[in-house]
């Protein structure tokens, strides 16, 4: 099937098998390697990307379903060489270790902060609870989201 998907702002047209999962389309057809695969059961969230601005687990969607829609991956977070505040905060707060869950976590955080710019710790923990991390114990991820929220609100002032 021929599909056209807007990926990080650019329209991409490809021929795919209907059964191809969105994550394989992103990784193998488009060559964007930030989305990973960590489970078989829609549990871990390391494949998370934004579909029309909302996080989805790209292992649990067929690429053909994204035809005509818009996707953002971690590769699209930085603009003009500037890290997104969420990316900068994951670095400054040591919100990552092995880095495998990081792209999905950051995309979830980005979408969440757009909906809730001043969240509590509890709200952040709730928002990232569809994404597993095995290294950090989440605490520094929470700190990173808090730091990003502060930085984003200062910028918007």
């Amino acid at each position: 099937m021929n599909i056209t998907v807007t990926v990080n702002g650019s329209a991409r047209t490809s021929e795919v098998e209907p059964r191809m999962l969105l994550v394989h389309y992103i990784r193998e057809v488009l060559g964007l390697r930030g989305a990973h695969v960590g489970c078989d059961t829609t549990s871990c969230g390391v494949c998370t990307v934004l579909l029309d601005g909302l996080p989805v687990k790209s292992c649990t969607m067929f690429a053909v379903q994204a035809d005509g829609r818009s996707i953002m991956t971690v590769e699209g977070m930085a603009t003009n060489g500037q890290l997104h505040p969420v990316q900068a905060a994951f670095h400054s707060e040591h919100g990552l270790q092995c880095g495998f869950c990081t792209p999905g976590m950051m995309l979830v955080a980005k979408a969440f902060l757009e909906e809730n710019p001043a969240p509590s710790e509890e709200e952040i923990r709730w928002a990232i609870s569809g994404n597993l991390c095995r290294c950090t114990g989440y605490q520094n991820i929470v700190k990173a989201v808090q730091a990003a929220a502060r930085n984003m609100s200062e910028v918007s002032k």
Partner: peptide, 9 residues
């Protein structure tokens, strides 16, 4: 961190 937060691991 630089490569991981950019999805370039």
């Amino acid at each position: 961190d630089a490569r991981f937060i950019a999805g370039r691991g």
